[in-house]
Amino acid sequence: MSAILQVRDLQVSYYTDLGRATALNRVNLDLQAGEKLGLVGESGSGKSTMALAMMRMIKAPGRIESGSVDVDGVDLMKLSEEEMRLARLSRIAYIPQGAMNSLNPVMRIGAQMVDAIRAHVPTMSKEDMIARAKDSLESVDLKRNVFDMYAHELSGGMKQRVCIAIGILLKPKVIIADEPTSALDVVTQRQVMETIDRVQKEIGTAVILIGHDMGLMAQFVDKVAVMYAGRLTEVSTVRDMFTTPMHPYAQALIKSLPNLKNKGVFQGIPGLAPSLLRIPSGCAFHPRCTQAMDRCKTTIPEVQDHNGRLVACHLYTEGA
């Protein structure tokens, strides 16, 4: 089975007054149709940059330096601006962080949805557009009359579900959701995640869930990708990641999770995330790593396949 999403050698830099910050460093990622991937990492590890780069929405002073993003056989990086505009939402949809605040307060929900459809399929009849929008609302468990409402008439969870409804209007192949529930309380969070889960199964799209809540990942995704300082450190199935994490950073991350058995035990990860302007030499994690060796300081570990798990660490490379 070929992957629906293939990211190859994606590199993004931000040109700041203090120098060039490499926010994404030669990232490779494959995603099968219908697969749910969690992208986790600390703030500044490049999660959101990755999402924006895949949408080709990196703004100055940022720049996509190189790489390709294939969605269903089409390389988004080679499209013209106009073609890319059409590809957004129809091939690859993005639900940004705090999306619910992006709804237009003076436009009815329905009008905003019809706008989105018209921008992509201008030939569709008005009735069909309205029907499509209402169906989409229904599929996220909202009543059809939400179509005629304004954003202020909806609760936070409902607004977030409207955003999901807009995201699936054109049945994209890939949906990227950037912390879709970070502003919601746990009960609403569960409702929203269950909605995404169900919709995802219905239209068979692949989902990338960005966040740092490992609990949410354990409950929702099939695969977890851990980012650190702009690189992928480990990509494993969710079960492997939680039971036998391989990369020392992933190990520390899993160990720091609270559970009911170890009340009052806090295990943080010592040290601080590096600044992207001054990424340590060799493996970026080596100053915080408890298992660092000499060559971690000099050589950048390549991502290698270990029985289907992708790990970038010298502990597992030949000749260690």
Partner: peptide, 22 residues
């Protein structure tokens, strides 16, 4: 309901396992 909705970082403790409906 609150406690049932916590996404625990444990694979064997699934969401909604106590059958509380939202």
């Amino acid at each position: 309901l609150l406690i049932d909705s916590i996404p625990w970082p444990e694979l064997d403790r699934r969401w909604g396992s106590d059958g509380m409906m939202v």
